[in-house]
Nucleic acid binder design. Structure first.
Lengths: 125, 125
DNA sequence: TGCAACAGTGACATCGATGTGAGGGTCCCG
DNA sequence: CGGGACCCTCACATCGATGTCACTGTTGCA
């Protein structure tokens, strides 16, 4: 598919798709006329990128993560230098910290909402 | 305590403490000489703010969340307009989405690391 | 008295993610 | 052939979080 369709299917401005490519997060074939041509699977990939960006990870780090999110069991995990592994462990731990922080605060918000619900008129939904 | 101590205790540049104040996330008393004076509990508050910022929430939203994270059970939850409640529910759901996204990807990274560990020499740590 | 350490404000710079527009090709359909 | 919809690149603007610097006032101690 071309950039317009990918944009529509992922709800992502074309501008950003080109930006992600510039940052090395995605890669597109080129048609003879210079148009980008995307494989089907890029729709999911773009959504994943957007989710990670939205979760606060910068493109630089997402770029490091993507290769190892790609082939979850595809065998090709030989080219992992000790530095890369250390970096990934660091990212993993930082993500865990983020998750914990978000969870704590999300639960606090939820608790607050429940308290409000109980106090004021008993809403259903 | 004054800004220097709070800065040191939270690992946050003074510049940012003033910025958070400017954004309405924290408030400081003023000593007669104009210096900011912080209550003890602001150390925890600042760390909470940093965690949320790090998790990708903008100050604008953190400002909305803080009041209801403050008094988890302090009773004062009367002043909750339906709009505020709706906004909080939205934030709660968006945080949940973030948590899920982060968890999914963190687990993928962890799985990858385990696979690498199993494949190459069996490390301990 | 003078200096060092700390505080204040204000302004400008940076960096990453994103918006927007100019100027110019390509494709298709009438 | 002409126009509309799509694509390209390039560049500049914006916005939020943060860094940095300049200038000034305050405190405390030698």
């Amino acid at each position: 598919m071309r950039i317009g369709e990918l944009s529509e299917r992922t709800g992502t401005p074309r501008r950003l798709l080109r930006y992600y490519e510039e940052q090395g997060l995605i890669a597109a074939e080129r048609l003879p006329n210079g148009y980008r041509e995307y494989d089907e699977l890029y729709a999911a990939r773009v959504l994943q990128i957007r989710g990670l960006l939205d979760a606060g990870l910068p493109t630089r780090i997402i770029k490091e993560l993507l290769p190892c999110l790609d082939h979850p069991r595809s065998g090709q995990l030989a080219e992992a230098t000790p530095e890369m592994i250390a970096a990934l462990e660091l990212h993993r731990d930082r993500m865990t910290a983020r998750i914990n922080c978000l969870t704590r605060n999300r639960d606090a918000v939820a608790q607050y909402l429940e308290a409000v619900r109980d106090t004021s008129g008993g809403g259903s939904s």
